[in-house]
Design a protein around this nucleic acid. Structure first.
Lengths: 160, 160
DNA sequence: ATTACTGCAAAGCATTTGCAAATGC
DNA sequence: GCATTTGCAAATGCTTTGCAGTAAT
């Protein structure tokens, strides 16, 4: 089915991300004296083929068969590397499963999660950022990153 | 050791919370046509004996032996009820374990978590609340609750 | 050649669940 | 007495890990 390595079936946007991100990941790996492998490129490509949120296990399932086979263990290990490299972010809001989302070419954004349909709605708000920065200054805390989630009901579900 | 039922060893503050919360939980259970049981009172008392954050499994461990024995399964089941009743809130920020915190008699507050020592620092900021309310209005999202976490380094650890 | 990585399957581990006995109503 | 809960232990399901073979440098 998908020809990840050749990239022929990839959407233009996805291919662009991969082309941009892969060399950076290679640098990261080299600095870390880790190796540049096929499996790692396949996982990175698959990650960028998912547009928004995905869970580790789904990704592993997608790669568990077919021409671009990568084992579950390796998928989990590679995701951890990609997190360290700053390409993805782990999210553990709704259940036990770890969700991931892109942080590469994707500005810092917050989420609303609908209790009814489970949808993730993204939003940004500069005011919030400022207030958080203020709070950190006040408490002498050095921010690395932050996470904001609003739980509730989305418009669609409220109308039902 | 602890005499939860008699409440004799409980700190004054904890006893007060329990005395206030237990009748409310009883109401909740009755409305839900659930039963008012010993085990549920023991769990509720133990929850209020923990001052801030605790993880489900620790609580279960504490109650797995001694005079106020309650089984793991029941502890998990009761925590779920207490969450539904609005006494506690689940937090899944740092690892796979589910953490809980009180929401009873505890104003809405946010957290900073130190990467180095893992400490939870609580803070509140009305400005943030307002901005979130605004964002919800903008996106026609009905907020039930929200969660803000800032990751970074606390003052103590930064000085090391 | 050396050393890291992969695949596989087995192990971990918090949480959930099935069922018989116990308890609340 | 009848229905819900409990305790126990077994099952679940995501994630991690050990190890022998494989691939990268």
């Amino acid at each position: 089915m998908s020809k990840v390595q050749e990239g022929q079936d990839l959407e233009e946007e996805v291919r662009q991300s991969v082309d941009e991100a892969w060399p950076l990941f290679v640098d990261f790996l080299k600095k870390r004296q880790a190796r540049v492998t096929q499996a790692r490129k396949i996982v990175l490509t698959q990650v960028f083929s998912r547009h928004d949120h995905f869970c580790a296990d789904d990704l592993a399932a997608e790669l568990s068969s077919g021409p671009n086979h990568v084992s579950r263990g390796t998928v989990y290990r590679t995701l951890a590397l990609m997190e360290e490299a700053g390409f993805v972010r782990v999210i553990r809001d709704t259940d036990v499963h770890a969700h991931y989302e892109h942080t590469f070419n994707h500005p810092n954004h917050e989420h609303m999660i609908c209790d009814a349909c489970g949808e993730f709605i993204e939003f940004t708000d500069d005011g919030i950022m400022e207030h958080i920065a203020d709070a950190c200054k006040r408490l002498k805390f050095e921010e690395r990153t932050h996470r904001i989630v609003v739980f509730g009901t989305c418009e669609k579900c409220r109308r039902k």
